[in-house]
Design a binder for these strands. Structure first.
Lengths: 131, 131
DNA sequence: ATTAACTATTGACAAAGTGTAAATAATAAG
DNA sequence: CTTATTATTTACACTTTGTCAATAGTTAAT
């Protein structure tokens, strides 16, 4: 079983926060994946682990990762082949960045930086409001 | 005409970045709106302006804002009434936070903070990779 | 007074994205 | 041989988003 059911707790009250419109890390996953792929070829399952372990992006379902990979391949950002030296399990599809993918990574990094500055502005505004 | 067509440029090359899966500020808009609503009642059009001017969230289409407002009302985070003292235009629907909305705001702020830390981790990792 | 521009909200439909569950399959451990 | 783990794929309903346009009141110009 893939290991995290703790997609924000359901322990409090917070009706309606488990599934709704709002900020969503699924949307952050894609750029993050390109960054990881930039280090070299990987297969989906490993990528999934890195997303959780290195970035703490909660991947609730492996399908999300495979989905995103297929999407990235669809737009030509990555390419794949079946792995030769297979290991503990069924054959693995290994992905690598294309040159278009590198361009896209560039774009997304700038975009993420802009996002961060917007996020900072939002949080700062709130902190000033409540202080 | 509502004033911003500059939803990241289409000027470069970057095939496929205008419309796709990836990070999306639309998803950031909702928590931002709650923060603005926390200051007091507002109507949609004003909210739209504040999102762009104060937070630099590019709202390409006013519909997005109204949609989000209807959604937030649907989940009980906000309530609305028609404005009494009407001004330059047709009647305006004025929204205010409910107590559920305050709870939700609390939740989203913590969530945004977590998002920021993930974002930081992602960008930091990339900067270390390329340096 | 007709037109144009701005303020303000709503509607509708196609396309894209997401949650969720499960099927498939190979290998390793017991 | 059964179970657990690794690994990828499929399917369907539901939600969200893009896009475009309709509606309508107010203000300013011709």
């Amino acid at each position: 079983m893939y290991g995290n059911n703790r997609h924000h707790g359901r322990g409090g009250g917070h009706r309606g926060q488990d599934r709704m419109m709002g900020r969503s890390l699924v949307r952050m996953m894609q750029p993050a994946m390109l960054i990881l792929l930039n280090r070299g070829p990987v297969h989906g399952y490993a990528l999934m682990d890195q997303l959780t372990e290195e970035f703490s992006i909660p991947v609730m379902n492996p399908n999300q990762v495979y989905r995103a990979l297929r999407h990235l391949e669809g737009v030509g950002a990555i390419e794949s082949d079946w792995d030769q030296d297979e290991s503990q399990g069924p054959p693995r599809r290994v992905y690598r960045l294309t040159s278009d993918g590198h361009e896209m990574l560039d774009f997304w990094v700038k975009d993420l930086e802009e996002t961060r500055s917007i996020l900072d502005r939002i949080l700062k505004a709130y902190q000033e409001d409540v202080s």
